[in-house]
Computed example of a mutant assay.
Amino acid sequence: MVEWVQYLILLLCPLMMIFCMKGHMGGHKHHEETDITKNLNKKIKYLQDENEMLREEILHLLKSEKKES
């Protein structure tokens, strides 16, 4: 019986370490995802604004081309 308890304690150590490390890393991952999401949202907003400006410029060029014709 004593042998069985020793093996159980020996196996519990790595399992506890795995769960503790996973819990520790999970907290950082959530924070990183928030930063990444904010960064992506800024880039998307920039691209949307740039896209709108380009559309307006294209419309302006098309109108000026029609006037010249």
Rank of each mutant, 00 (worst) to 15 (best):
L15S: 11
M25A: 07
L47E: 02
K67N: 01
E57M: 05
L54S: 04
H30C: 01
K29C: 02
K38M: 09
D35H: 06
E32R: 13
Q48E: 14
L10M: 00
R55V: 01
Q6F: 03
K42G: 05
E33P: 04
H60L: 14
E68M: 06
Y46N: 11
I18V: 15
G26I: 03
W4G: 06
L40I: 04
L54D: 03
P14V: 01
V2D: 09
I9D: 08
L12K: 03
F19N: 06
K42F: 02
K42S: 14
T34Y: 08
I58N: 10
C20D: 08
L10Q: 10
H60M: 06
E50W: 05
K45G: 00
K45Q: 11
M53Q: 13
M21P: 00
G27I: 05
I44W: 04
K67Q: 10
Q6C: 00
Q6A: 12
L10D: 01
E56Q: 10
N39E: 08
I36F: 02
M25D: 10
K38W: 01
D35Y: 04
R55N: 06
H31P: 00
L8C: 05
S69P: 06
G27E: 12
H60I: 03
H30M: 15
M53G: 11
E57P: 00
N41A: 12
V2Y: 00
I36C: 03
H28I: 03
M21E: 14
R55C: 10
L59F: 07
I18F: 10
E32T: 10
L47C: 03
P14S: 14
I58Q: 02
K45I: 02
C13A: 15
H28N: 04
Y7N: 12
N39T: 13
S64L: 11
W4C: 08
N41S: 07
K43Y: 05
E32M: 09
D49E: 12
M53V: 06
S69K: 08
H31S: 10
D35N: 13
M1C: 01
K43P: 00
K29N: 09
S69N: 09
K45Y: 09
E33I: 14
Q6G: 02
